[in-house]
Nucleic acid binder design. Structure first.
Lengths: 154, 154
DNA sequence: CCCTTCTTGACTAATCTTGACCTTAATGAT
DNA sequence: ATCATTAAGGTCAAGATTAGTCAAGAAGGG
């Protein structure tokens, strides 16, 4: 995977550390300094690449001895996590967030490449396009939740 | 092959790069600059020459480190059959007819049991339920067509 | 001439980067 | 104990950097 932006580089760096251990703790200022970016950029990377929909749990603490803890969660072993993902979808979801979830399912080997593609086309903007954007997001949520629920109880 | 327009030249250029690798990533502004055309011309070339019907998948990202990714995909043997099924669906389809089609796909071994289940969930009345029955049938047709279209390629 | 395809650019949208300002926690002085 | 200080991380919005859309006009081919 080509790293085009510094955010991509930081993402790859954090994931390389995560390769060893399923859980890491970093100090935000340290990472920011290492890549010569402002500290809030680390928040941006975490928010866009290490959220629950991507299969990560993040906790942090401020003040002296503060840290950011990133943990890779396994959707297979932890059926609660899949339920959390379903809950996080709620009654509406954007195409982008839905894609993120399906990608995670594939990376976690819960679904095959082809199954993932089928799910992707079923929830895609091109397929569901409606006049009312909110109606589209609600519909997408219903379909995705139905698909995930099916995966949960097979 | 006679290239009579700059769009043809750009098409040939992109395909020559694709000769090596089944997947390439370009920066729109770079290609546009190289051929001295406006950036949106690249979109035109991609839209008219690198769409799914022509056997190409295209993905892109905007913003810093943005790109356009073009991937060549292979048509499957059953592609023609699927196209005929797609044509028969038209713009609307009932749940019963959709189930019949998906069952046939499974019996013909075009899809696995699990893929069939996922497709069934995606087009089921329970998932798509709408006030307007015709709108529901139209939506179901769009989703089913999208799924079948995906099955035509690998 | 008419119709399709191509070319161009103004406007829009998504993503990334940066920095000012805010909140929380630990520590030490009184 | 209380409060000020210091040391973290959080939020948000503006600006920068790409790509996308759309429609008007030009160019080509019957």
């Amino acid at each position: 995977m080509e790293e085009r932006s510094i955010s991509d580089v930081i993402e790859a760096y954090l994931k390389s550390i995560l390769g060893d251990d399923p859980k890491i703790e970093i100090r935000r200022a340290e990472i920011a300094d290492h890549f010569d970016v402002v500290p809030s950029q680390i928040n941006y990377v975490i928010k866009t690449r290490f959220n629950l929909q991507n299969g990560y749990l993040v906790q942090s603490k401020r003040g002296g001895g503060g840290y950011i803890r990133i943990e890779r969660v396994n959707l297979l072993d932890d059926s609660d996590v899949l339920e959390m993902v379903i809950d996080s979808i709620g009654t509406a979801i954007s195409e982008k967030d839905a894609i993120r979830i399906i990608n995670t399912l594939y990376e976690e080997k819960l679904i095959s490449h082809r199954e993932g593609d089928l799910m992707l086309v079923a929830i895609s903007k091109a397929t569901l396009k409606q006049d009312d954007r909110r109606a589209e997001a609600r519909l997408r949520a219903r379909i995705l939740v139905a698909l995930l629920t099916r995966l949960r109880y097979e």
